[in-house]
Design a protein around this nucleic acid. Structure first.
Lengths: 179, 179
DNA sequence: CAAAACATGTAAGTAGTTACATGATTAT
DNA sequence: ATAATCATGTAACTACTTACATGTTTTG
């Protein structure tokens, strides 16, 4: 959804070369956001053009290694993206990305969005529960039917988990998860 | 990851027109797998070429509406894909897709893959727990640090949830979630 | 000195998104 | 009749993936 912003935020946390970024996107970051080295180099090139990042003139070390840092315009762009890009319930990872941005250059007012998302997740959970009541409340079930129920259970458990998590996070963002 | 297979499986569950599929992918199916009508029509066209699906000659009803059904080759392709395409821990939705295929034309032996995935999810959960111990066991935390911990918590809770779910599903697939 | 890891890129192909386009049927 | 919904498609653009390509530095 937003590879350039993922890269900007990673660079805000620590200025890096394309190669370093590729490694970071394979380890810690990669657990929730992926990018190949081709994507990274392409985006870095574009963002230099745009003026969001610049190569740190590695004074002494005149090797071929290029370390990038985020410029003021890039920082502003991250803040703008966090504030003005509404996410949906399916953009879990993008929301975590916003939290990382908030940790790096915050506060950026992510609390409001968390509250909205809690509402949307609750609505979806209710939808799932209604389907559960309607289609899976009876007794005897065929194998196929039990599998279909398992798929729905995955959705239900996922929403419950997200809401549990949101309840933990809300106070950190200065909002209430009310009820 | 595999739009054509998602469409084939939806068609196995119920022969439909492109328009119907688009609606189904917006409702129930859309909660875990998305496809726009352009993708759907394009894939349907391709799959007719390949011989995986065919238009049901809507005898009487000679309107412009085209209902597609899955041919034997398409069915075989689904079975092949389910059996021969190993998924990673991040392909949650693709695994649910396999369960739907198994419910529709199973059994396809998905149990083995579930067992493998349980192992991989446990490994990832352990990695997260180690990071937790190493980086977040101390007391006093800054705001930024607490947010970083919240991101890690999301990962931990997600893995725990998946493992809980897998424990429910295992018996349906004839395998044990052992321990 | 050879292999592994470092480091950055181009090119081609595939998939996905967004915008445009058209016409038929159904309901008000 | 006119608006909404049904129904199917093309075209252009953007993003992503996979393969190719090249040279450097470090380590055994």
């Amino acid at each position: 959804m937003s590879t350039p912003h993922a890269i900007l935020i990673a660079l805000l946390e620590k200025p890096s070369s394309g190669y370093d970024l590729a490694r970071r996107f394979d380890r810690a970051i990669g657990y929730f956001w992926r990018a190949t080295h081709q994507q990274i180099y392409r985006e870095l090139g574009r963002m230099v053009e745009t003026g969001w990042v610049a190569v740190v003139d590695d004074d002494a070390d005149a090797t071929r290694r290029k370390v990038y840092r985020v410029l003021r315009a890039g920082r502003n762009e991250v803040a703008r993206w966090v504030r003005e890009t509404p996410l949906g319930v399916d953009d879990r990872n993008a929301f975590l990305l916003k939290l990382r941005a908030d940790a790096a250059i915050g506060p950026l007012g992510v609390g409001g969005e968390l509250v909205r998302l809690i509402g949307e997740h609750r609505a979806r959970l209710n939808t799932y529960r209604e389907i559960e009541q309607r289609d899976f409340s009876g007794r005897a079930s065929t194998d196929a039917r039990q599998l279909q129920y398992a798929i729905l259970r995955a959705g239900i458990m996922q929403e419950q988990m997200w809401l549990d998590w949101a309840r933990e996070v809300a106070p950190l963002l200065g909002v209430r998860a009310d009820r």
